[in-house]
Amino acid sequence: MEKIRIEGVSFIYSKGTPFERRALDGVSCSFEAGKITCLIGHTGSGKSTLVNLLNGLYRPTEGKVYLDGEDIWARPKKITDIRRRVGLVMQYPEYQLFDETVYSDIAFGPKNLGLDAGEIDLRVREAIAFVGLDEALLSKSPFELSGGQKRRVAIAGIIAMRPEVLVLDEPAAGLDPRGRREILGGLTRYVRERGITLILVSHSMEDMASYCDNVVVMKDAKVFMQGTVDEVFSHPDELDAVGLDTPEITKLAQGLIQAGIVLSGALYTVEDVRDAILRYIGGNAQ
């Protein structure tokens, strides 16, 4: 079932000025409910613009955005309701922290929803646990935290609003490998538990292979490809044409297959290939 559907959407920046730029050009795609979809494409491909259209920060110049089958711009005055249902975490979200304590910063969103203090408290504590931070940090100033901790607090601020759809624009940008794994692993576990629809903007084919179900590939303001991870990976030449490299491990596995070592199943992560090799050895031993 589709949660969000984009239909023939175009978006033009600075329309009618000499700086006019078409960032999206007749884009149609959909995001399945309860699934993790990877939105991939290069800087300038239009993916960031698309993200801002998903929760009504931008209004399409042409076309429609549907949430649960309803046009989100049917009643423009009610667009803030859409923003509550579709939570957006921007790139480098740590730069949006502003309040005196971590607690009040995470509570900013829930407060704007008009919840009572008890409910807010519950949600703040739940959110901070989900991003893997200690409750002792709640009384600290967000500006005292490390970069990675700030990032998690910012993500907790959106999670505390309990959105139905979570859109994350490169949540792991600039983090070291462990930080990446913790953030992406934690988030994907959380959305799977809650049945939340997750849209993950990423540059990394490795992330896409490890965490996502579906993929939307953007190129030059258009949707270039969309489908399941398997479907998209089965077109390596097209991926290459948009400058998206097949993961190193997949290339390695393909090299093995060419040499007559027949590996089967998905071959996108180190674990995939390890298991395939172990299966191959097991098969030969019989």
């Binding site: 921007m90 979200p93 900013f108 969103g109 959106i158």
Partner: peptide, 10 residues
């Protein structure tokens, strides 16, 4: 960007 981020937080 910051305005959009805070709008996203309601």
């Amino acid at each position: 960007t910051i305005m959009n981020a805070q709008k996203s937080r309601g």
